[in-house]
Nucleic acid binder design. Structure first.
Ligand code: MN
Ligand code: MN
Ligand code: MN
Ligand code: MN
Lengths: 219, 219
DNA sequence: ATCACAACTTTGATTGGTCAAAGTATAGCG
DNA sequence: CGCTATACTTTGACCAATCAAAGTTGTGAT
């Protein structure tokens, strides 16, 4: 019933509302992350409000209704289960699956999705380490920090990678920054804005702080 | 690049041109089998001609160009490989896969499709017995007749089922009319318009001629 | 040869999604 | 407190895909 466009908007708004919690999600963020002009976003928000997916406050932003959240969450589940299928079953690389899933998520029925979930053995995380919401729309989020504010000198486990771009994912894989891998922050240099890392017995390397921010770790 | 709508039109036109060979495919058939009004079909044909997918002759019909045929064939391949995946891997019933594939065929990339083909072991036929075109767009069609004009008294193998409707497929399965099964036509009654069949050792049953036409057999 | 009617085309309208450009509100600086 | 820069909204336009209804054509029955 909701179009692919509506599905994309709601998934995007839900993700924005989760990652940077300002009660309302402002127009600018939405337009920006969907790559549309702000006028388009505004007019879309009005029609999404008319269809009861969200509440729109002019010049403030939007908040999802419970059906909006539910649909957004369903889209995240679809996206991440599909990504898992593409890597686990078909053997694609984790750097090429995001865009594929972005399209497939709108084409797969609830029935096929649940079969896929069973076929994959009810995975809890996608290939980038992101939690897969349950059918009921619940995310089991593990405690995590970014490499920016992790403890120096302690062993930690890589939980997930925030950036979905092919280039960054290829880079991360080459460096061994993949979910599950153990890692140690050797030192942080606040003047150079870098953090020095070591993975297992491989050589040390350092990361700028904007890159470090994209790596989530635990423990 | 071509929209899902364009893909549907071209697949449909290719299938019509293959099954009932009148050089040109008339508007009426197209509009009818896509469930749009004839005006819509006419205007769509003009724009498809503009984009070089086909040749349109007013009040005659359309013929696909070679790129039109190629795209149409690619869509048939996608559709049938997806149907095979849905049955073989996810365990759906052959009566529920057509509509799912009708949507997924527009969302799956060439790369994922070829991985799927390998994963499935390069199947030659979909669950309804229809041949899957090769990547190069070639259909290996086995010699076949409908149950309407088969030989009476001879053992034959069911090749494929033409009708994609849930109800007919459920019926066919119940009767044992599935690709690969052996079958014998006991008699034909031209007054009653029926044909009497027997499958292995199960009881005889008869089929009206419109139903018989939907079953393709060989040998 | 005529003509009715089925098959087709044209016309004018609608809907969803989009943009560019012009207009407006407001947070926060001075 | 007033003003400006930034974020947002409005307006008017466009495109793809569709329909309903009115108009046209060509075939085949008489
Ligand atoms: Mn998407
Ligand atoms: Mn992911
Ligand atoms: Mn389709
Ligand atoms: Mn089929």
């Amino acid at each position: 019933m909701p179009s692919a466009t509506v599905e994309n908007y709601l998934k995007c708004i839900l993700m924005l509302s989760m990652e940077c919690d300002h009660g309302e999600v402002p127009m600018g963020l939405i337009a920006n992350s969907l790559g549309v002009t702000s006028g388009t976003a505004t007019s879309m928000m009005k029609s999404l409000q008319k269809e009861k997916w969200l509440k729109y406050k002019s010049r403030k932003g939007v908040t999802l209704t419970s059906s909006g959240k539910k649909l957004g969450m369903r889209m995240i589940r679809r996206h991440r289960l599909l990504e898992t299928f593409l890597v686990e079953t078909l053997g694609l690389d984790w750097s090429e699956i995001h865009d594929e899933a972005e399209v497939l998520e709108h084409a797969i029925s609830e029935k096929v999705l649940e079969r896929l979930d069973v076929f994959l053995g009810n995975p809890r995380h996608d290939p980038h380490g992101h939690p897969i919401p349950t059918k009921a729309g619940i995310i089991r989020k593990s405690p995590q920090k970014t490499l920016l504010d992790c403890d120096i000198g302690k062993k930690m486990k890589v939980v997930s990678i925030f950036d979905q771009s092919t280039e960054f994912l290829n880079f991360a894989k080459k460096k061994g920054l993949m979910p599950g891998n153990m890692i140690k922050a050797i030192s942080r240099d606040n003047l150079a804005d870098t953090i020095e890392l070591q993975i297992e017995k491989t050589p040390k390397f350092s990361l700028g702080l904007t890159s470090a921010e994209k790596i989530l770790v635990s423990g």
